[in-house]
């Protein structure tokens, strides 16, 4: 299980490991730092060429993906869903939620803010809310997140991001009432 592996790597206490389903992870790096770091990752022609090159070179791609897994695993408990939501979630990974919620907390968060499924850890969506709110980014949480593409698990989300595959992963705040949820990669087949 990826969760287990990552938790082992970041040295979570044994009683915090729940084999079988994901466990919320509070990021080990502060939100302001991460919002700033994001500019380093923003797509540019060099990154785009790098991403295209990586996809043509399986060995390099594997190494690159392993590096992403290692870095994001250590900071966020990243599970490598391949379509990263972090910029819109206060840099707390929603895939560490045992219910895999991409659109905010469920109704079971305990009065003290603990996860309903793993009561010994804080709800990752509460963490996301607090981090986003402190940075004036709480409106990000109102964005509607489309369902993820389960074919992308294990792939590098950075490569996907630079290749422009994340566009449409969430909707802009305006006019979304009329937007269909139809999957971004398969536009309207008749």
């Amino acid at each position: 299980m990826p969760t287990r592996k990552h938790l082992d790597r970041i040295g979570a206490a044994p009683e915090r490991r729940h084999a079988g389903w994901p466990t919320p992870v509070t990021p080990s790096v502060s939100a302001p730092t991460l919002y700033r770091l994001h500019y380093l990752l923003a797509p540019n022609p060099v990154y785009r060429r790098l991403a295209a090159w990586l996809e043509r070179n399986p060995t390099a791609n594997r190494l690159f993906t392993a590096a992403e897994e290692r870095i994001k695993g250590a900071i966020f408990g990243c599970r490598m869903c391949g379509q990263c939501a972090l910029p819109a979630t206060g840099y707390a990974c929603p895939m560490t939620c045992p219910k895999q919620l991409r659109n905010g907390p469920c109704g079971g968060v305990s009065p003290t803010g603990m996860c309903e499924v793993n009561p010994d850890v804080r709800c990752v969506w509460l963490v996301a809310f607090e981090r986003a709110e402190a940075e004036g980014r709480v409106e990000d949480l109102s964005l509607l997140q489309r369902p993820i593409d389960h074919r992308q698990w294990g792939r590098s989300s950075w490569v996907n991001y630079w290749q422009g595959r994340d566009e449409g992963m969430w909707t802009s705040a305006d006019g979304r009432r009329q937007l269909p949820i139809v999957h971004r990669n398969d536009p309207g087949k008749p």
């Binding site: 895999q100 991409r102 369902p147 389960h150 269909p180 949820i181 139809v182 398969d186 087949k189």
Partner: peptide, 26 residues
Amino acid sequence: AVFDIDGVQLVWTARTMRDQGRLLSG
């Protein structure tokens, strides 16, 4: 536990089926 999509996405899916007459696949 399946949780392929979440509750908000399921609402959105239903609305798209009804108002746009389309499945998630389009």
